[in-house]
């Protein structure tokens, strides 16, 4: 059986030896990280965004690269998933997007701060994180088909705003999100004035609705209503 001094030698060799290997790997990792993370592309704006990320302790609810808390969504590929437009609306007023559901703090970010946060998230999203976050591998086949499918023809004419924002909750011909109702045949149910009224202030029309007030500019709203009226 081992004696105490042999045990001590084992401890010292294991500790010093593996510390050495760890330091060597650290050295190599530091050499490789700049390329793997595109550190040359960390813009001034992205850096400011990271300071905001840090100052607001976003990791206290969210995860990024899988690190943080488990109360709010994983944000590594948020820009790819939602698009800049959607994130802007969300960051201006988080509760507007998910009324009555889990709440995010209203930080009253300025437009510049929102730009910075999105720049940071965009940089994070482009890091080569060895595949993380992985695409769902057990998604129901219908969802996979929908995700991979070409957008239906009717959507080719949709305004950019629709594709960037509305589509994440609403579907047409089965293409889009399922948080809000599908919009097929919406023109047969509502007229132009009703659609305008609805989009201008959903709460006024139906109090308690989960449809957010998107504070649409006049021309964007008109463009949307015009297109929605073609869905009959």
């Amino acid at each position: 059986m081992l004696s105490k001094s042999q045990a001590k030698v084992f401890f010292l060799v294991a500790t010093l030896g593996f510390s050495g290997v760890f330091l060597a790997l650290t050295f190599d990792t530091m050499r490789q990280i700049p390329e793997q993370t595109n550190s040359a592309e960390i813009s001034e704006s992205a850096l400011r965004g990271r300071h905001i990320w840090d100052r607001k302790n976003c990791m206290g609810c969210h995860t990024i690269l899988g690190e943080g808390a488990y109360y709010a969504p994983e944000l590594t590929r948020a820009v790819e998933r939602r698009g800049e437009e959607w994130l802007r609306i969300f960051l201006r007023d988080p509760e507007a997007m998910y009324p009555g559901r889990r709440r995010m703090i209203q930080y009253n970010f300025t437009e510049d701060e929102i730009t910075d946060v999105i720049a940071f998230l965009e940089w994070i999203g482009n890091i080569d994180a060895n595949g993380f976050p992985f695409d769902p591998d057990m998604a129901p086949t219908a969802a996979i088909a929908a995700a991979g499918a070409e957008a239906p023809e009717v959507l080719q004419a949709a305004p950019t705003y629709y594709r960037n924002v509305c589509q994440s909750c609403h579907a047409v011909e089965g293409f889009g999100g399922n948080t809000g109702p599908a919009l097929d045949g919406v023109a047969t149910r509502f007229n132009e004035a009703e659609l305008h009224q609805w989009l201008a202030d959903p709460q006024a029309v139906r109090p308690g609705t989960t449809m957010p007030n998107l504070n649409l500019a006049e021309d964007v709203r008109t463009e949307l209503v015009t297109w929605l009226l073609t869905l009959d």
């Binding site: 080569d128 994180a129 060895n130």
Partner: peptide
């Protein structure tokens, strides 16, 4: 594993 460090990790 997933923070942007080399794959050998």
């Amino acid at each position: 594993y997933w923070i942007g460090a080399p794959k050998y990790w």
